[in-house]
């Protein structure tokens, strides 16, 4: 019965994209009927695996605490989503929304700055030839191998030293070091900016800054959005550093806050439902950003793929 519920969900949502892509038969060869059948069964399994937890989260968010434990997990029972949401909003003086706000600050401000730094650095590395270039490229590549742990604890120590522990800046500034973004920026700049255009602009007397702003950054548009997406998801995901740096509840991002609730739910059962609803609410912004920027990451990653 539970499985058929998933089936229904699948069938209900599948026709959203009934239009088959023109490029469907990419090799001009029609696959055999048996092949298609086997692949279809496999893909249904894949769909169930990847979507089931999210579906469960949606269903569980609509349930009361007692229904969560007593009714079948994959189907709705008494609708209590609004009750749960209002409890979520009022619990502990509405601390949850404070966490969401904090996450928006950390990820919103953070990802925009990360993207700016990545794009301008990648542009500089791709467009100019200068002393020290090889050193910077090497440092970027090498630093991607440095585990976060090696950094987290001494970074914390450093923040204590300069008095930034337990502040917004203490979480925000260290997260701006984003070598992966610089590497992507470098790849995009190299593949999308022809040097002839820059030469022409220089001959017209444009300053280097102006060339970057009105030519370089525009040509890198798609890549920029891809970097922004990765930066946003990455910083929304940030957990270890804020866990170390912050001890004030009202400064925590939503991931750290929810983890705290989950740990506390062992003794405060009410938090179990709130953790479930909170988890659902917390992924809505990332999922929306993700879906909204679909067009960009699809083509952006393909552009990066040239050099991967």
């Amino acid at each position: 019965m539970t499985v058929s519920a998933v089936e229904q969900q699948r069938v209900a949502s599948a026709p959203v994209r009934t239009r088959r892509r023109g490029g469907g038969s990419s090799h001009g060869e029609r696959p055999s009927k048996l092949g298609v059948a086997v692949v279809s069964v496999f893909m249904i399994g894949v769909l169930v695996y990847f979507m089931l937890p999210v579906y469960w989260l949606v269903v569980a968010s609509t349930k009361t605490a007692s229904d969560l434990f007593s009714t079948p997990g994959l189907w709705f029972s008494e609708m209590n989503l609004w009750g749960n949401l209002s409890r979520l909003s009022t619990y502990d003086g509405g601390i949850f929304w404070r966490w969401m706000f904090n996450s928006f600050i950390y990820s919103g401000v953070g990802s925009v700055l990360m993207t700016f730094v990545s794009v301008i650095s990648g542009y500089a590395l791709a467009v100019y030839r200068f002393r020290g270039r090889a050193l910077v490229v090497g440092a970027v590549m090498g630093s991607m191998l440095v585990p976060q742990t090696v950094l987290a604890q001494p970074t914390y120590q450093l923040l204590v030293e300069i008095g930034l522990n337990n502040t917004y800046a203490g979480v925000l500034i260290p997260s701006l070091v984003y070598p992966f973004g610089v590497m992507l920026g470098f790849i995009y700049a190299r593949s999308s900016i022809p040097t002839e255009i820059l030469e022409a602009a220089r001959l017209d007397g444009a300053s280097e800054w102006r060339i970057f702003l009105s030519i370089g950054s525009r040509l890198m548009g798609t890549g920029t959005v891809t970097i922004l997406l990765f930066a946003f998801i990455g910083s929304w995901n940030n957990f270890m550093l804020p866990l170390l740096v912050l001890n004030d509840q009202s400064l925590m991002p939503v991931t750290v806050g929810l983890n705290g609730w989950s740990q506390a739910s062992i003794t405060v059962p009410e938090l179990q439902t709130l953790t479930v609803v909170g988890a659902l609410v917390s992924i809505v912004p990332v999922v929306l950003v993700f879906l909204g920027l679909q067009r960009y990451w699809r083509s952006g990653l393909a552009a990066g793929g040239v050099r991967f």
């Binding site: 990419s26 090799h27 696959p31 894949v46 990847f50 929304w236 957990f239 991931t255 999922v287």
Partner: peptide, 28 residues
């Protein structure tokens, strides 16, 4: 390949969990 239907929808479904923070994924 040509063997899969609803490509975009399925691709999105497989990629979507990446947008779920590791902490929330583990809670789930």
């Amino acid at each position: 390949s040509a063997a899969v239907r609803f490509k975009r929808f399925l691709q999105l479904s497989v990629f979507l969990p990446y947008a779920v923070p590791a902490v929330v994924a583990a809670l789930l």
